[in-house]
């Protein structure tokens, strides 16, 4: 370690180095922000386009030079969208399916997760491992047989077909079980000493403590119902039972030039609005649920 080599690190033009460093930092920060803003614009653009298209008149929409702010605000598009796509009926159907399936599913998830987390029984490990194994199989495998089963039971075109097959989600059971396991066992033992029954303990202690996870599950499940397409289309596609996604797509069958695009966009906006509202207010729960569970609702 010679003196001279240490000197080489000294002999630099301090001024140049400092100003070069400042420039580099500015470019770095500037570039980062530019990139992020560009990406953000790309992400936001479809929403923006949807909203402004939805209030344009059809004639304005068809202008060869597009306008970035509508000349006339045609809110009647929304009313028209509502009737064309029978959104009222669709919203009701979907809400009904969503709420019922979420409540029932929550109930089943809670008691099942509780059994795996706190109760002792033979074969617990094996059963749980088996459950986890089923998570790896793609849903399409089940759909085929379930369709047959549902038809055999005579449930085609009923709400039952839409609700029952999906009441058990192994994923949510796993998630809730993890959460339950984090609640200290001492609480359980203390409750037992106090003579509390398991049932009471579950509903009075564990459920409140696991509330964030339960909220996340609720939201994700409702979102799932709102966005479901394949299964409802398969089993319950008549007027009375059609769900929102299916109805939306089919209300505006593509025939060139004859679709009233602004109205279609208005319909899309209406359908997206509830999700958007939920996102604004409950964003924390959704993002926490997704990152912990790692799946799409």
């Amino acid at each position: 370690m010679s003196e001279s080599s240490i000197r080489t690190m000294q002999n630099r033009d301090m001024g140049r180095v400092t100003s070069k460093q400042r420039v580099a930092k500015a470019i770095g920060m500037g570039g980062t922000y530019l990139f992020l803003c560009l990406m953000a614009l790309i992400v936001l653009f479809p929403f923006y386009w949807m909203l402004i298209s939805s209030v344009k008149s059809l004639a304005e929409y068809r202008l060869s030079k597009p306008t970035f702010w509508p000349q006339v605000l045609l809110f009647s598009n929304y009313a028209e969208a509502f009737t064309t796509a029978s959104l009222g009926r669709l919203f009701l159907n979907t809400a009904y399916v969503g709420i019922v399936s979420t409540i029932l599913s929550l109930f089943i998830t809670i008691i099942t997760a509780f059994a795996f987390a706190r109760l002792e029984f033979k074969g617990k490990e094996l059963l749980f491992a088996g459950l986890l194994a089923t998570m790896m199989i793609p849903g399409e495998l089940f759909t085929i047989t379930n369709y047959i089963t549902v038809s055999t039971f005579g449930w085609t075109n009923t709400f039952t077909a839409l609700i029952v097959p999906f009441l058990v989600s192994v994923f949510y059971i796993y998630l809730l079980r993890q959460n339950f396991l984090q609640i200290p066992n001492e609480l359980y033992l203390a409750a037992k000493v106090d003579g509390t029954s398991d049932w009471k303990y579950l509903w009075k202690v564990m459920v409140p403590l696991a509330l964030p996870t339960l909220i996340s599950i609720t939201i994700l499940k409702m979102m799932g119902a709102w966005n479901s397409y394949i299964w409802p289309r398969l089993v319950a596609n008549d007027e009375a039972h059609r769900l929102v996604t299916n109805g939306l797509r089919n209300a505006f069958k593509d025939t060139t030039g004859e679709v009233n695009y602004p109205v279609q966009m208005a319909a899309v906006a209406l359908v997206s609005a509830p999700l958007f509202l939920v996102f604004i207010f409950l964003r924390k729960y959704i993002m926490a649920g997704v990152s912990r569970s790692g799946i799409k609702g």
């Binding site: 966005n227 996604t245 939306l248 899309v268 999700l275």
Partner: peptide, 8 residues
């Protein structure tokens, strides 16, 4: 909604 925004 996957399909809704697909339409957009």
């Amino acid at each position: 909604n996957s399909i809704a925004i697909g339409m957009v």
